[in-house]
Design a binder for these strands. Structure first.
Lengths: 356, 356
DNA sequence: CAGACTCCCGGAAACGTTTACAGCAGACAG
DNA sequence: CTGTCTGCTGTAAACGTTTCCGGGAGTCTG
């Protein structure tokens, strides 16, 4: 090893020592100049020159060890192919960037071990904070969230009184909006294509669907309910299974990817949308507007949730002693062509209903 | 400051010193036990207990400073809303995960300053390596790539002989495949909806389109060419502008998002696809299969490019002295319903053509 | 029973930075 | 001309971990 001691790093790159030696000053002076604080004009010149000559770049890891912060914030989501997370990410990014930090995204692929591993790894000081949007929550998981060494904000439902900052929506009510709308438009054989029931959103949406139908006095026909996962292909396949055994006049879908799958299955089966079957998705992503006909969709305020989560996180990074907070974003319904009531017969009255 | 010196970290969290003191051993022994190397059964027990009692979690930053590696790999793409990057990311992720590392994604939003900033920040040792897929390349940018302190692999075209690992495709030829297919199916008024011409892929695809038409002896009608950006809304708007002034019988689109926009515009304008207008997209993403009718699309092997890029990166991390390598992935065409030739009149001969 | 060998342990250095502190020179006021 | 103040500078400690190295205790072999 021919390199002079303390002069350059293990892999031969220049360090602040290299620069200081070359400029003929101490490492303290070199560091000060490189950080733009203090230094006589002459010193500044010498250090700048030396740094440029050797191509010095600071080692951020070492800096972070000293300063106790990295300037990085992470977002962990299940599936980055789902546009709802893209919208959430964009909202988070703009808040995070405004604070001078950078956002990194990690896709967990829905594997809970993966997500816990990420928590156990990134949270160990690689990032200044994390936003996590888990679709399944185990005890193990929850424990990792609660005693994370860095601030964590959860987007989504959390059991009970977990002491974690949390931004949620009410997807039960959200499903209700869709059902109300379809009932008001005269639909009675309303089907439901859901994601896995062992996920938090899947369970909530199932409950919401059943409650909404009951609220309208409509008896639920179980043949009109199908389950897949939250992606396109599963949504399409589930809809095909449903169509093979029942004849819905409307479909509520647990997210927009599923709704697109349902739309595809319906059109391929020769059904007209919305004339024969109305379709309502959920999450109100850009994808809903990309379809033809455009999809009605229940907005769960993903951008708003992302924005708020980012703000909560930044506040907690600034002051880790804050008590855990919980915020809620209300759902709303965007009606578009896929459930337009125009061509239907007589619109039904909005008062409580007799069964269809 | 009441904390005992060297016992716990600045923010009150336990360190290896805390654990060692509590277990009554040296920090060296504590560290060894915590890393699972060495230690007598008795020591192991004491350290494990102490660690559990104080809730010790190692500081990854400090570990990285010592070990010179972070176990993290970053991917920087322009727009994470573009499904082509999602597919690329999935391919990269599986390779990276197999090596025991974690992948972090950063969306640059197409702002080149953003991307350069990321390079200048993350590359300063926060990650062990980076994969970058820039759509614009400036000199500044290129410089940042070339003398990055950590290994970098570029997915996409790079000017000349830049000494950077590089996986590219040939989108010129890719556009040619689409044109060949449409010409063979009897289309003659072939339009083109492109992204910005000042991007690397935009320029390449424009050149490819012109070359392909010329190769078939078809004179280019400039009214059949429109430009937007690479996203859905722009693709739709561009197609509307195009339809307002010309009557194409086919549209080649510079990516699938644009193609979806074009499809939407065509259907909204009452054109039948593929009977009146055939549509071919590019990137062959899941989105193409999600449409109705399903979109034909030119695959540029995004998953394959991602996989190869990840492998190049891992190799370079293992041995930074490797010479720069360049790999190429060939494009191919997936024909689907949006350009099916079925219902057209007489298919044209495949020999070089007279003008339409 | 002595010597070599193994195993475990603790001290201390190292990773590359920032920064508290003290020293020193020059400027200025009295 | 002397004393104080200001502004730079360098030494060294600190961030929290891993790991080299030397020493001590125990075990096995000859």
């Amino acid at each position: 090893m021919g390199r002079k001691r303390l002069q350059e790093s293990a892999d031969g790159r220049p360090t602040v020592h290299t620069v200081a030696a070359r400029a003929g000053v101490s490492i303290a002076s070199a560091s000060r100049v490189l950080n733009g604080v203090g230094g006589s004009p002459e010193t500044v010149r010498k250090v700048r020159e030396a740094a440029a000559e050797v191509g010095y770049v600071p080692n951020a890891i070492a800096r972070s060890l000293q300063s106790q912060r990295t300037g990085l914030v992470a977002l962990a989501v299940e599936d980055i192919g789902n546009p709802v997370y893209v919208e959430m990410m964009r909202a988070i990014e703009s808040v995070v960037a405004a604070s001078g930090r950078q956002l990194l995204v990690h896709a967990t692929g829905g594997q809970i071990a993966n997500e816990t591993a990420l928590l156990r790894r990134l949270a160990h000081r690689y990032v200044d904070g994390m936003i996590v949007s888990p679709i399944r929550v185990t005890d193990d998981h929850l424990a990792a969230l609660v005693d994370s060494p860095v601030p964590v904000v959860v987007v989504g439902q959390l059991p009970g009184d977990a002491p974690v900052d949390n931004v949620r929506t009410d997807s039960r009510t959200g499903v209700g909006l869709a059902v109300d709308h379809l009932v008001a438009a005269g639909r009675r054989r309303i089907g439901f294509v859901n994601g896995p029931l062992d996920t938090v959103p899947g369970a909530a949406r199932d409950a919401g669907f059943r409650a909404a139908l009951a609220g309208h006095g409509i008896a639920l026909d179980e043949r009109l309910v199908e389950v897949g996962d939250f992606r396109y292909a599963a949504g399409r396949a589930a809809t095909e299974r449903l169509l093979a055994r029942a004849e819905p006049d409307a479909l509520v879908c647990a997210n927009d990817l599923i709704a697109v799958g349902a739309l595809h299955a319906l059109l391929a089966a020769g059904r007209r949308v919305p004339e024969d079957v109305a379709v309502v998705g959920m999450d109100d992503t850009e994808l809903a507007r990309m379809m033809f006909p455009q999809l009605s969709s229940v907005s769960l305020g993903s951008a708003e949730r992302g924005r708020r989560a980012a703000e909560l996180l930044l506040q907690r990074i600034a002051d880790p002693t804050l008590p855990p907070r919980r915020e809620q974003v209300a759902p709303s319904l965007a009606v578009r062509a896929s459930s337009a009531a125009a061509s239907l017969p007589a619109p039904a009255p909005r008062t409580p209903e007799v069964t269809a």
